[in-house]
Amino acid sequence: MPTLSDSFLTALGLIVSGDADLIEIVALSLRVSLTAVLLAALIGLPLGAVLAVVRFPGRGLLIVVVNALMGLPPVVVGLVVYLTFSASGPLGVLEFLYTPAAMIVAQTVLVTPIIAALARSTLADLLGEYDETLRVLGANRFDVVATLLWDGRFSLATALLAGLGRALAEVGAVMLVGGNIDHVTRVMTTAIALETSRGALPLALGLGIVLLLITLVLNAVVLGVRNRMEAHAHA
């Protein structure tokens, strides 16, 4: 069995060598997952805010559904996206299958409920604090949504990070819709799965450590920026 120290050495070697294939895989992972989180934020943040602010029939049910969708198995999302973009599927003409575009779509589907649900819960708390004040100032629902999104921006950064973590970590969806094609759709997690299936466990774990370090750095950067700005913006 490979020891952890083997894997750390492998990870270190990978990083130090600046291996071109590794850089390509890391870059694609970041491009796919960051784009997916951006799209998911564009959908999920307003959705979460509306669910927090607007009362309408079926709202309770929708909140339950969005919360439940946080637990969507990536492989199920992958399967649905695969069948959608399959040449014989409804959107086959787009020719997204086995391209990064399909991976972005799958991860967007996966991440949107996380961002929406976390945003709703954060903004519902903030609404409790702001509601009367905003109504007295003459805010309509749109104003309330916009105000909450802006004033909740530092807490919402955490929701985005949770989404990014999920996107970078999942393998089931991108494997199915991307196909783990070398130099085209191979990302960190599918590369790890491949090395595991080749029994190259130290390399697989080494890649895992690299992925962990990237996630760590991303979180540190976002939280660092957030904390600096937050300290500047309010107590």
Partner: peptide
């Protein structure tokens, strides 16, 4: 109406006023 414990937005003093003017 100014509530007993006024809730100020997590923004600068001027931005709080700009926000209220926008709502008005």
């Amino acid at each position: 109406l100014v509530l007993q414990r006024p809730v100020l937005l997590r923004r600068s003093v001027a931005a709080n006023l700009r926000h209220a003017l926008a709502l008005a």
